[in-house]
Amino acid sequence: MAMNADEIERRIKVALPDAVVTIKDLAGDGDHYSALVMSEAFRGKSRLQQHQMVYAALKGSMGGELHALALQTVTPDSAPTTAH
């Protein structure tokens, strides 16, 4: 069963309560998403560490319930203007 965008956002916000999350369904199939996650928790972390934090929030769903996630992580001061 595929994971819907609301569930992806919910899981990320449980792990990163201050996160602003923007999810897009890339293929219209509920299986391929892009996510922009903005959180102060990313400050001082490498991009790899930031992505690991998001993947940990998804609790092993990648490759199963969630087939593909194009992930972009930012801190509030480095966010693209569309994320504000």
Rank of each mutant, 00 (worst) to 15 (best):
K13H: 08
V14P: 00
V14M: 07
A15D: 02
A15S: 08
A15W: 12
A15Q: 05
L16S: 12
L16N: 14
P17R: 15
P17G: 11
P17N: 13
P17T: 10
P17D: 10
D18P: 08
D18I: 02
D18W: 06
A19G: 06
V20N: 14
V20W: 06
V21L: 00
V21S: 04
T22S: 15
I23Y: 09
I23F: 08
I23A: 12
I23R: 13
K24S: 11
K24G: 04
K24R: 15
L26V: 02
L26D: 01
G28Q: 05
D29F: 00
D29H: 03
G30Q: 07
G30N: 09
D31A: 13
D31N: 11
D31W: 03
D31V: 00
D31H: 04
H32S: 02
Y33H: 08
Y33S: 08
Y33W: 04
S34R: 04
A35T: 00
L36E: 13
V37M: 11
V37G: 12
V37H: 11
M38K: 15
M38E: 15
M38N: 14
M38D: 12
M38W: 05
S39I: 00
S39G: 01
E40D: 13
E40M: 07
E40H: 10
E40S: 11
F42R: 10
R43V: 01
G44M: 02
K45C: 09
K45Y: 01
S46T: 11
S46A: 03
R47E: 09
L48T: 01
Q49H: 10
Q49E: 13
H51D: 10
H51G: 09
Q52V: 00
Q52H: 05
M53K: 10
V54E: 08
A56K: 15
A56R: 15
A56H: 15
A57F: 11
A57Q: 06
L58D: 07
K59T: 03
K59R: 15
G60I: 00
S61N: 15
S61W: 14
S61P: 10
M62V: 06
M62D: 06
G63N: 09
G63A: 09
G63R: 12
G64H: 14
G64V: 01
E65M: 14
E65D: 10
E65F: 08
E65S: 15
L66T: 01
L66I: 04
H67D: 07
H67P: 04
A68V: 01
A68P: 07
A68Q: 11
L69K: 14
L69C: 07
L69R: 14
L69E: 09
L69S: 06
A70T: 04
A70H: 14
A70L: 15
A70M: 14
L71S: 10
L71I: 02
L71C: 05
Q72I: 02
T73R: 10
T73Q: 03
V74W: 11
T75F: 03
T75K: 10
D77M: 01
D77C: 04
S78H: 14
S78K: 14
A79W: 03
P80V: 00
P80W: 12
T81H: 13
